[in-house]
Simulated scan of single mutants.
Amino acid sequence: MRMPAFLLLAAGLSVSTAASASALAHEYVLEDLVVVHPFATPAPPGVPHAAAYVDIRVEGDTPAALVGATTPASDSVELHDMQMDGGVMRMRRVERIEVPAGTLQTMRPGGGYHLMLMDLKAPLRLGERFPMTLEFAERGEVEVEVWVQGADAGSEAADGHHHPD
């Protein structure tokens, strides 16, 4: 039996829309922890460092703490926090990023927590992807794929992935 053309078109649009939505954000699960849309922004030419961002959601009753990260894209990864201090934006290294139970910790360009990729092996280019391992106290490690995107595109994709309760 032949399917009418309008049904074929509708089915194609449905598959295309689903594929587009899944391409906008990605997530990883470790126990009751959900890591959403890891992305990094390209560094300006000649700058050997770049920032990566990730949203972390704890769906259970036990808080989580991100305590480290590694990637073959850089020599090391540091956990950082950027805050205003007397009218000046200051970045400082932190030992851990706490995620209270039942909450979402978002990381975005422009301030707050981020992962600093120190001494990049090669410049990060828009559209590239690279692996990163996130280490959580008491929960272990989860390997994620980091997408290199512009700050707005990465933030919008991560924001669009979260569903209102």
Rank of each mutant, 00 (worst) to 15 (best):
M1Q: 15
P4E: 11
A5I: 09
A10T: 14
G12N: 05
L13H: 08
V15P: 03
V15Y: 13
S16N: 09
S16C: 07
A18H: 04
A18C: 07
A18P: 00
A19H: 11
S20P: 05
S20L: 13
L24R: 12
H26V: 12
H26E: 13
E27M: 07
L30K: 06
E31P: 00
E31K: 08
D32Q: 04
D32P: 00
L33M: 06
L33N: 00
V34N: 04
V35W: 04
V36I: 15
H37C: 01
H37P: 02
H37N: 09
F39D: 03
T41W: 00
T41F: 00
P42T: 08
P45A: 02
P45C: 00
P48L: 02
A52M: 07
Y53Q: 00
Y53H: 04
D55K: 10
I56Y: 05
I56G: 05
R57A: 11
R57Y: 11
E59R: 15
E59D: 14
E59V: 14
G60H: 00
D61L: 07
D61G: 09
T62D: 09
T62A: 14
P63E: 01
A64E: 03
A64Q: 01
A64R: 01
V67N: 01
V67S: 04
G68W: 05
A69Q: 02
A69V: 03
T71A: 06
P72Q: 09
D75R: 15
V77Q: 01
E78A: 11
L79Q: 02
L79N: 00
L79D: 03
L79Y: 01
H80D: 12
D81F: 12
D81V: 09
Q83A: 12
M84V: 06
D85F: 10
V88W: 10
R92G: 07
R93A: 14
E95N: 15
E95V: 12
R96C: 09
E98L: 11
E98H: 11
V99L: 14
V99D: 01
P100K: 15
P100Q: 11
A101G: 12
A101I: 06
Q105P: 02
M107N: 05
G110T: 01
G111H: 15
G111V: 05
G112E: 04
Y113E: 05
H114V: 01
H114M: 09
H114K: 07
L115A: 00
L117G: 00
M118N: 10
M118T: 12
M118W: 06
D119H: 08
A122E: 13
P123H: 01
L124F: 06
L124M: 10
L124E: 02
R125I: 11
L126K: 12
G127E: 09
G127M: 06
E128Q: 08
E128V: 04
E128T: 08
R129I: 05
M132R: 05
M132Y: 06
T133D: 07
T133F: 02
L134W: 02
L134I: 10
E135K: 10
E138Y: 07
R139P: 02
G140Y: 05
E141M: 06
E141G: 13
E143Q: 07
E143R: 13
E143Y: 05
V146H: 01
W147G: 03
Q149N: 09
G150I: 02
D152V: 14
A153K: 04
A153T: 08
G154W: 03
G154N: 05
E156G: 02
A157C: 11
A157F: 15
A158W: 00
D159A: 13
G160I: 04
H161F: 15
H161N: 07
H163W: 11
P164A: 14
P164W: 06
D165M: 10
D165H: 12
